[in-house]
Design a protein around this nucleic acid. Structure first.
Lengths: 324, 324
DNA sequence: GTGAAAGCGCTAACAT
DNA sequence: ATGTTAGCGCTTTCAC
């Protein structure tokens, strides 16, 4: 450590001074700080982590960088983690289980103190294995819960209910659903749709499962062809496909058909008409994830599963049915 | 290292076996691998980095997680870096110079072997200081070049030219420009617009500088009020504002007015009409960044500044002017 | 208030 | 083919 030499003291003193320990005389401390500054010295996280056994690093693994839902959760994590002095490291696994697992592994090898997984794609046993080494919290709705892993999710059931109730209150009776590809979140949304429709004394009008990606358009077309006055879509992209198709077939929303999305992505603000959508409290979810992690680091051992209530953001894609 | 004990050998052998060194007998190797597996052992990147002096870690610093342009560049970096055995670590600085600087520092303290900065917000001296420690390449167009830092950028001049020429070829003569907020990239686009219009024997019809964010709508309205038949916007979001305003005032694109964006974000595919936009070869830029880094690690010392040619993606927001 | 020495988990050079 | 030793840069006792 050349700072030690430059200041004419021992390594130990440099270490103490740099961390603002009180047991160093003001004069020496000043001399050391000055030398460090001059030499552009910065302590090495690796070396410190090695001896201290912790790194103040928080790993965040996410499925999809391009997904604004994910990135906003990450922002929540970053914000709250930084407040507590953690440095957030991101790793990106794509929608690829093995890559996700590899990235998680990479984070663990770096001795991160804890991990947030913003993904519901990782296999439970991989997750559980990670949780045996450091606290792990997953943001999202798991297929199967992994023991030792805390979760933060939004209440998809409640979100679906809010969407359907909104449409029913506008006077719609033929409310269809464009469902997702069968991941847990979309399954719960679909179930919530069915239940709520029944609670309201209606019948599920029509449900079509949109395959991810290319077939969304086809599914939207098929669904609209059945003549609903309103559609609750499993996410904003699916809602967009409905909006589009409705426009093309000469009954644009909201007059021709009302459309509600889920996730309240930036898209909802961007498209015309602006999309009514169910908003997940993403920042809050991120912050909550950090809190759960800190609790674990503080010694909690029982698993926690937090569920947050989403809320409906009403915009311009929903209106009373025309023939009313 | 309890794996050593479990397998009844020395630490060194474990180390060798785990890295597949040949100088270990098949039998012992198997025994070690087995023990490691059973104990869930993984070598510690920190410790290895400490002794080897390199970590095979590649740090990526980005301004804006929510920006698909950035994240796609990152994908290019990830892809190519992983091929070479590097692990990519992401850090997120927001549009905040001091936070960007802090995150960069955090990456450096982790002893990453090199850094890609996907941002043009970082101050040149911070960048230069980082480059004195490890190879640094910046993707984007810097305000001022930082010595020792390689750059990868798209040719904004050429992109603007392609956009304007496309509009002129369609027969437009009143081509306006919705300019950006004065960052280098948008300044070059504006200059390219002006020059190309003149080269074509026309006059710059009208240029309005959109302030980032809220005032984009106002700027778009103002610009359209001047009666252009075509607008080249400095980016897709600005183009969207124009599209919107055109729609609201009863002359929707492309019949009412032709619109070209820049960046070819996912939005361009999503909005109706689909947006004609200048595409930056983002994946390629990411890969190129990795290559420059590897060259530096291989010993190159002179700075390189790569400029890639963007290409225009023609969609449905542009057409010949109506009154022709 | 300060310094010397041990050791974090690993690899590399050098024995054996 | 295997074990021993030193040391990466730091923090942390423990003496002084």
């Amino acid at each position: 450590m050349d700072v030690a030499a430059a200041a004419g003291v021992s390594k130990s003193l440099v270490s103490l001074a740099l961390r603002g320990d009180h047991g160093v005389s003001a004069a020496t401390s000043a001399r050391i700080l000055d030398a460090a500054e001059r030499l552009g010295y910065r302590s090495n996280t690796l070396a410190r982590g090695l001896v201290q056994g912790r790194t103040m690093l928080l790993g965040v693994l996410l499925t999809d960088l391009a997904n604004p839902y994910h990135t906003e959760v990450v922002s929540g994590v970053e914000e709250s983690a930084e407040e507590r002095g953690f440095t957030v490291l991101l790793a990106h696994g794509r929608r690829d289980q093995s890559m996700l697992a590899r990235r998680l592994e990479a984070l663990l090898q770096l001795n991160v103190d804890a991990v947030v997984v913003v993904s519901s794609w990782l296999e439970p046993d991989v997750l559980a294995a990670a949780a045996r080494r450091v606290p792990v919290v997953m943001v999202g709705r798991p297929e199967t819960p992994a023991p030792g892993v805390d979760t933060v999710a939004n209440d998809d059931r409640a979100g679906a209910e809010a969407a359907v109730r909104h449409l029913a209150e506008l006077g719609h009776e033929r409310i269809a659903h464009l469902a997702g590809s069968g991941r847990p979140a979309s399954r719960v949304r679909e179930a919530g749709y069915r239940e709520t429709v029944r609670e309201l004394g209606l019948e599920p009008y029509n449900v079509i499962r949109g395959i991810e990606g290319g077939d969304r358009e086809r599914a939207a077309a098929e669904l609209l062809a059945t003549g609903p006055t309103a559609v609750f879509a499993t996410n904003d992209l699916a809602a967009l496909a409905v909006l589009d198709r409705a426009h093309e077939t000469g009954r644009p929303a909201p007059e021709g058909v009302s459309v509600v999305g889920y996730d309240n992505t930036a898209l909802a603000e961007t498209v015309r008409p602006r999309l009514t959508s169910v908003d997940q409290p993403r920042l809050v979810m991120g912050r909550l994830a950090t809190r759960l992690l800190l609790e674990r680091l503080g010694g909690r051992t029982e698993d926690r599963h937090e569920v947050l209530t989403p809320n409906l953001v009403v915009r311009d894609s929903t209106a009373p049915p025309r023939d009313r």
